[in-house]
Design a protein around this nucleic acid. Structure first.
Lengths: 161, 161
DNA sequence: ATAATTGCAAAGCGTTTGCACCCTG
DNA sequence: CAGGGTGCAAACGCTTTGCAATTAT
């Protein structure tokens, strides 16, 4: 298992995070853009998820926070991840049965390359499926509105090993 | 939420066929081909699933059997569906979080068109993704081995409504 | 101020498992 | 006959929810 990563968060109670304006998109900014209140817990959850090398479950985020000594309730982690997913701040997907995984993703439509060995996730920019999909679906009288694609294989590092 | 379909293709060759009535022969043959014992319960589960217009969960299959007055245990339904999935007799996928759906599918590699309104499932024969995937993945040093695609939209009937 | 958010613990739900009995091959 | 299959119920793990206390705006 990976070593525990202790997080340093410059939380400044009383500061309006929505008015933070620097080059980078802070967690506070992301929350503000999404139109949700920037609470200490939500910032922690988002920061923690953003630092995860792979996707993570609510339980895993909760464990990270606990290990870091941060007092956050499990229910809050669940509620926060669901909320962030609703508002498009994080992506939600389930390659694991019985568990929901989350990940902070880039902008726009994309798909994921999941390594079967290390479970690392890379983003596959661009998507050339639409044209084929519309054409193929038409034969069924089907009108596609969205699609999800997940590619499983071996990442560069794991091919070497 | 990102639905994921898991497909298992597994052939277990060279197993003796059992002599059965015409109604059960197809299911019995499928079980025999898969190299699993053809018990009353397994035949019932497989035939019930095959009769489902859409995909179904273990609980739903169990309910159907109960309604039909067939004495089958819930645990057996779970164990049977998992077994059949392992042996490629049925496909297993999860567009619903927290539940695993099953469906008797056609042969070969294919994807699913899922209607957002009636949840009906159609099969999309053929798959033109491989070429693009290999090319696109190479840019990441990624070597794809398999992929899952699920298309959500409106089926012909539901477009009318 | 006040409406949203959190924490805790209990409940909900789908699924799995231990074990004695039953049945297929 | 032997070893796998089944049924029942208890156990399990992930997730949700009720409610009082807390907190953001």
């Amino acid at each position: 298992m990976a070593p525990v990563m202790r997080m340093t968060l410059n939380l400044n109670p009383g500061v309006s995070y929505s008015s933070m304006s620097d080059g980078q998109r802070t967690s506070g900014a992301r929350l503000a853009e999404a139109g949700v209140r920037a609470t200490r817990q939500r910032l922690l959850v988002l920061e923690t998820l953003a630092r995860e090398p792979h996707d993570a479950t609510a339980q895993e985020i909760y464990a990270r926070l606990r290990q870091g000594g941060e007092p956050v309730g499990l229910a809050t982690v669940y509620r926060t991840l669901a909320l962030l997913s609703e508002h498009g701040v994080v992506d939600e997907f389930a390659h694991r049965p019985g568990e929901t995984c989350y990940r902070v993703c880039g902008e726009g439509h994309h798909h994921h390359l999941v390594c079967a060995r290390c479970h690392g996730v890379a983003e596959l920019e661009g998507c050339e499926l639409d044209e084929w999909l519309v054409r193929a679906s038409r034969e069924h009288g089907f009108q596609p509105t969205s699609h999800t694609l997940e590619v499983v294989g071996l990442c560069a590092s794991c091919q070497a090993a």
